[in-house]
Amino acid sequence: MRIEDFKNLHIAIVGGGYGGAASAIALKSIGAENVHVYEQAPAFGQVGAGIGLRPTTVELFRQWGIFDAIAAVSAPSDRLEIVTADGKMVLAQEEWPELHGFAQTNHTRIIHRGDFIEALFGALPPKMVHLGYQLNGITDHGNTSTLTFENGESVTADLVIGADGIRSLVRKQLFTDKAPVFAGEHAYRTVISLDDTFDLVTDDNPRFYIASNGTVAYNLPLRHRNQVSYDITARSEDDTWAPIITNDYLVALLEGFDQRILDIARTLDISKVTSRSVYDIDPVDLWHTDSVTLLGDSAHAMLHHQGQGANSAIQDAGALANALLEADSVPAALALFQANRKPLTDELQRLSRLGWTPESAEVAFPEQSAAK
């Protein structure tokens, strides 16, 4: 499609997470002007913990002209280290894939989720962002689709991007009503001061501590904030969305771990710990119609073990913009987008379900081996 075509294309994005915001930025970067993001929350807040934005993702930020904004609220990392639960043996220590794969070195950026969302939306004109718009339904007319919202408003667009997450209503109404799949795990996350880590953090690189029973404790340094993201994943049969926990419960989970990890668990303000059951979705056979596409978690929600969820959503955004430039129509672009991205995300979903054990942690990035 010609760049001139984008100026008249009405694009509606459902969901104001990483995928939705990145899609708006990517489309804006190729000339789209009539792009609107509809987010159900009434406001953006500082929620969540830390994530790692990989070098290939960082390269997109450079292309979109937002690298400086991301760098200002993140810390650079050059490697990932995986160690035994007691911290006495290094199982794997590897540079991030593609660290030196571009004209400039692209470190993985360790960032707080709230800072990341603020930086993304700070790159968009306020008129593109609509808060308090909870999707009620979608009707596909072929070349256009209509969104209806709980507030009574409706929007008809030439292209609708369903970036509405793991419980996507767009996916449920147009593609598949299969429910998310419980992984048999819980994830506990919080952000604490570096001063409260008992000297656990010594550099800017994430470190995973892995036990033979599948429990993983990992930390992502947020040194620019003088903080660290402290995370635990452990097996559980309780599929309650937000399980109730105590400090004693966390300490018991971490028996045999590095004493500093236990000390942190014992002294945490438990009211500030996010407790969640872990879910993903089975691969979705079809992501698109002629005027609607899924993107990010709505298309391929994956477990967090490989740290690829946010990165995949942002890579989707770049791939969708490229497909629109390459194809001669919106339907052709959506087909090309799925053809380019689905094999990659199917494999990442599969790898993410494998989890971590000391035996499986011979390499830090199993997707690298799978691609060979």
Rank of each mutant, 00 (worst) to 15 (best):
A163W: 03
S193T: 08
L169R: 11
T156A: 01
V181A: 14
A179I: 11
Y188I: 14
A157F: 00
I161M: 00
I166W: 01
R171A: 11
L194Y: 13
R167V: 02
S193H: 10
S193R: 13
I161H: 00
I192Q: 10
V201R: 09
D177F: 06
D177K: 11
N151S: 06
R189N: 09
F198A: 14
A163M: 07
L200Y: 06
A183W: 05
T148G: 04
R189E: 15
E153P: 05
D177E: 15
P180R: 09
S168T: 03
F149Y: 05
V201Y: 02
L200W: 11
T197K: 04
E153H: 11
V160Y: 00
R167Q: 05
L169S: 05
I166H: 08
T190M: 06
F149T: 04
V191H: 03
K178E: 15
F175T: 08
F175H: 07
L169K: 10
F149L: 09
F198W: 11
L174Q: 03
I166E: 02
K172W: 07
T197G: 04
L194T: 15
A187V: 15
R189V: 12
I161W: 00
I166V: 15
V170N: 03
L159M: 00
N151L: 09
T176C: 07
V181F: 12
I161C: 00
V170L: 09
L194Q: 15
G162N: 03
G165P: 01
L174Y: 01
L174P: 01
Q173N: 13
E150M: 09
Q173L: 15
T190H: 05
I161Q: 01
T190E: 08
V201M: 08
